[in-house]
């Protein structure tokens, strides 16, 4: 029963170029096309229209600001789902942070109007304490954290082994952040349950951290520079412990 194929109907032609016909029908049409010049031309033209539609239809790209807002929304979605579970802890942390922020704001206004960088560092540290949002990478393992930054930062850095860290110091996670408009790695540690924010920036491009005060509003700020990186840590832990962490981080940069 050779059911001789007539010229293709528009619907069939359309489904044919979309590859949506059952195999048998698809093959039958191919045989028809081999002998029917008119239909072969129509298929060619339909394929061209499809390709042109694909180009013309890809018309609206999100403006940069919209893209940034929507991307940020995706990053921060975890908070929405964890809200109920951890609301009590977050309220507590938020309250403490708000108090710290209020106290420290008074302190800043009076004394350090000029040094906005340390303010920014402290601000970011406080916001990681208060927001409760999970960092983008939640991991205690340097082999997870380090590769995550690949392609996200214009530089690379080393992380120490868990055993190489000072006692009771734990890596909790990491985030990408910006300091004075330069990309920076934000590493989150805890030392004796105190939160520590460590910022790693490129030495050439990043802001100069050497002039930073060593303490601000009750928080300790410690920095170190290596051949091409700057490392700065902010925490309310005791200065000696913070110093030990910064020293280990600085040291491991040169050991590769």
């Amino acid at each position: 029963m050779t059911q001789a194929i007539e010229h293709l109907s528009p619907d069939t032609l359309s489904a044919f170029i979309d590859g949506e016909l059952p195999t048998g029908e698809q093959e039958a049409i191919e045989r028809h096309l081999a002998g029917c010049h008119a239909c072969a031309l129509r298929v060619l033209s339909a394929t061209q229209l499809k390709a042109a539609t694909a180009r013309a239809g890809r018309r609206y790209a999100p403006p940069p600001e919209a893209l940034a807002r929507l991307t940020a929304q995706l990053h921060h979605q975890p908070q929405a789902t964890t809200r109920i579970r951890s609301i009590r802890r977050m309220t507590w942390v938020g309250l403490a942070a708000a108090l710290l922020l209020a106290v420290s704001l008074i302190g800043w206004r009076q004394i350090h109007e000029t040094n906005s960088l340390s303010a920014e560092l402290l601000d970011q540290h406080l916001s990681t304490l208060s927001s409760g949002a999970a960092p983008q990478v939640i991991s205690t393992d340097r082999h997870t954290v380090k590769p995550w930054f690949q392609g996200r930062l214009p530089f690379s850095f080393n992380l120490p082994d868990t055993q190489a860290l000072p006692p009771d110091t734990t890596l909790k996670g990491a985030d990408l952040t910006y300091l004075k408009g330069q990309p920076a790695a934000l590493l989150l540690f805890t030392i004796h349950k105190h939160q520590v924010s460590v910022f790693v920036t490129q030495r050439s491009a990043g802001p100069n951290l050497i002039t930073l005060p060593s303490a601000r509003s009750g928080f300790t700020i410690h920095s170190a520079t290596t051949h091409d990186l700057q490392i700065v840590a902010v925490s309310d832990v005791n200065p000696a412990d913070l110093n030990a962490l910064v020293a280990v981080l600085a040291q491991v940069q040169s050991s590769s």
Binding site: I138, S139, T170
Partner: peptide, 19 residues
């Protein structure tokens, strides 16, 4: 990876799952 279930998350495994 799985080792994200570190001590600070232990009290709320659902958190980790939803994160």
């Amino acid at each position: 990876p799985m080792h994200i279930r570190d001590s600070s998350q232990r009290e709320a495994p659902e958190n980790v799952a939803s994160i």
